[in-house]
Design a protein around this nucleic acid. Structure first.
Lengths: 356, 356
DNA sequence: CGGTGTTGGGCGAGCGTTCGCCCATTCAGG
DNA sequence: CCTGAATGGGCGAACGCTCGCCCAACACCG
């Protein structure tokens, strides 16, 4: 009765099967049967048990259950190096799918070196996760990390894992590059540059190949001078665009490998007094929230990370249930979203396009 | 030896204390003592046990440990309604702090109605989380949800919870509004509008009050006609700015309650041929990544969500450890970041300002 | 030589479940 | 009245760990 609340009041002593059993005059195993809907129990007894359980506020202890059943219905999610506009939808998709199937998700960040990542995976194993979704971009090159994923738990990854053997779900970067570049070509551009993120990474490398293929399709020879690297950031895009403009002033369009760099590139053009799309058309990748809000709105290839997360979990859970390794690669579709920055849309699109 | 790997090879049969004990010729309790560094055990025995454990690849089962110790060293994180640029740093901060202290984090999304949220909290309790970090914006008004948080587990929240009684960590919105508006006043503006997010929400309401107070400080009477609402989105900001421009064409500056709306507002100005900051200065809130990359770069009040997440977890864990309720409110500092959109910075800031 | 510590390790119990098997009753059929 | 299938529920064991108490063996001291 002190005005001050104390935590002792908060942390409720949990009631167990035994407590419910005692109060209902049956064995605790019978209570277990009733609560799990198994076994044959008289309707009257069943109801009595149910009532008592409700009255006492019984909450099952899934720790104990996991110990007995040897599966935790928990998956681990390991992330690192992802921009928030990627990580958030990824996690949302993953969490939604996991919970829909009765699983919980342990979220971890693998920001440190390999060694730390190793500890992290072990912590997940200590917690007896049934499987792992890998979204640790910074560990993409690590062989030992790949080994862990292969050895320690059923896993699915958002990007290729060093050494293979872990199913990958995601966009086909070649298609992304193809779509973007074909769009620019269809608009009549013939001198098209591209700003890659990081050529060591499959996603950017693949987009580059898609770009090259699209050019080839119309008989244009890919010019290495029209390729620059922006390291995924707006700043990088800004600098890359400036270099491109200096070395190849004839370009009339640029395919940029993500929206952030595209925004940086647009700033470079702006500062030189060049108009988008009149003087130079721009196409990005990702379709971040702001893509349709900047001026001019950004044409981009939409990649649904939410769907990636969801699919990754689905694959993982199916794999766990069937005890069979999922296919090595599951490709998710991408979609070209045409807006003002490519000159592909006639007018500035309405602001009320996609609300809610 | 089939080329095809099967999951049966993957899911390693875990080794237990008993396994290690048997192979070392001691009781499993002794192994437990050694592995936990407790009890007195002869150096030779200790070493033998350690060797065997390493050889067998022993990984403790924290489920069993939790069952015995009655604490899971796990916390739940409940999120909803947060933009990714808020959610991601929040989670990163929280995860980092949690793991630094030996805790894991169960991530959940509370997207549905109250009822679903209730189930969600119960699932967390089933998993016997030691505490909960609440970041469910959409449940802010829910009394029953607040009750759950108060009753079921030690909790800390990122925003005020209906009914109180749950410690809140975060910015003081009044200060945010004050800082932004004072900046505009210092630059000589006298007719300053404001675009709120949602006046029902303390964060926006508080910013509005800060704005009003700043005006009062210099003897300006706050004009209700200069206040509009943009519902937090870029679209909303666009529309609110247009309304403001129609109803009060004399304004020379606007304080916008988040960066997304600020970007929408800037678009509205752009479409009317008005220059930022010459014709109208803009100050936002949050300091999202892109704030310094758009044209003109956005002056804004930076709020460190990463720090909020970290602090929330720290408070929660301290609370659990001490078994005493944390203070009702912990205020984190905010910081005005002056860029081009307010005209406060002389020149367009260098793109290389804040790299890496 | 017996008492008193100290060291090293065993051991029972308990945490809250699930699982499978067993055993009373009851009731119908022959 | 005896038999045998349902029906309803009990019960032991196991999951893998922690915790606290107990006890043997040895050393030291007076």
């Amino acid at each position: 009765m002190l005005g001050e609340r104390s935590l002792k009041e908060i942390s409720v002593a949990h009631v167990s099967l035994r407590d419910v059993a005692e109060r209902s005059g049956v064995s605790f195993q019978t209570v277990s049967k009733v609560l799990n809907g198994e076994g044959r129990v008289a309707a009257a007894t069943r109801q009595r048990i149910l009532d008592v359980a409700a009255e006492l506020g019984y909450v099952p202890n899934s720790l104990a259950r996991s110990l007995a059943t040897r599966n935790s219905r928990t998956i681990g999610f390991i992330a690192s190096g992802l921009a928030s506009f990627v990580l958030t939808p990824l996690m949302k998709g993953a969490e939604r799918e996991a919970r829909a199937r009765g699983y919980s998700m342990l979220f971890t960040l693998a920001e440190g070196d390999e060694e730390q990542a190793e500890r992290l995976v072990h912590q997940l194993i200590e917690r007896r996760v049934d499987g792992i979704v890998n979204a640790a971009l910074t560990l993409q090159q690590s062989r030992s990390y790949g080994d862990l994923l292969r050895r320690l738990a059923p896993s699915v990854s958002i990007f290729p894992v060093q050494g293979g053997g872990v199913p990958v779900v995601g966009e086909d970067p070649g298609t992304t590059g193809l779509l973007a570049t074909r769009h620019l070509l269809a608009l009549g551009h013939r001198s098209i540059g591209t700003i890659a993120g990081d050529l060591d990474r499959p996603s950017s490398n693949g987009r580059l190949r898609g770009y090259q293929q699209a050019l080839k399709e119309v008989g244009i020879e890919a010019d290495p001078d029209l390729v620059d690297v922006g390291r995924w950031s707006a700043d990088g895009g800004f600098e890359a665009m400036n270099r491109l403009l200096d070395s190849a002033p004839t370009i009339t369009a640029v395919f940029v490998h993500n929206d952030h760099m595209a925004i940086g590139a647009m700033r470079a053009l702006y500062e030189r007094g060049l108009d988008v799309p009149e003087d130079c058309a721009i196409v990005g990748c990702d379709d971040i929230d702001l893509a349709r809000h900047i001026v001019p709105s950004l044409t981009t290839v939409r990649i649904s990370f939410e769907r990636s997360g969801e699919t990754a979990v689905r694959l993982l859970l199916d794999q766990i249930a069937s005890r069979e390794l999922a296919p090595e690669r599951l490709i998710l579709p991408v979609e070209l979203v045409v807006r003002a920055s490519s000159g592909g849309a006639r007018e500035i699109p309405s602001m009320s396009g996609q609300r809610g």
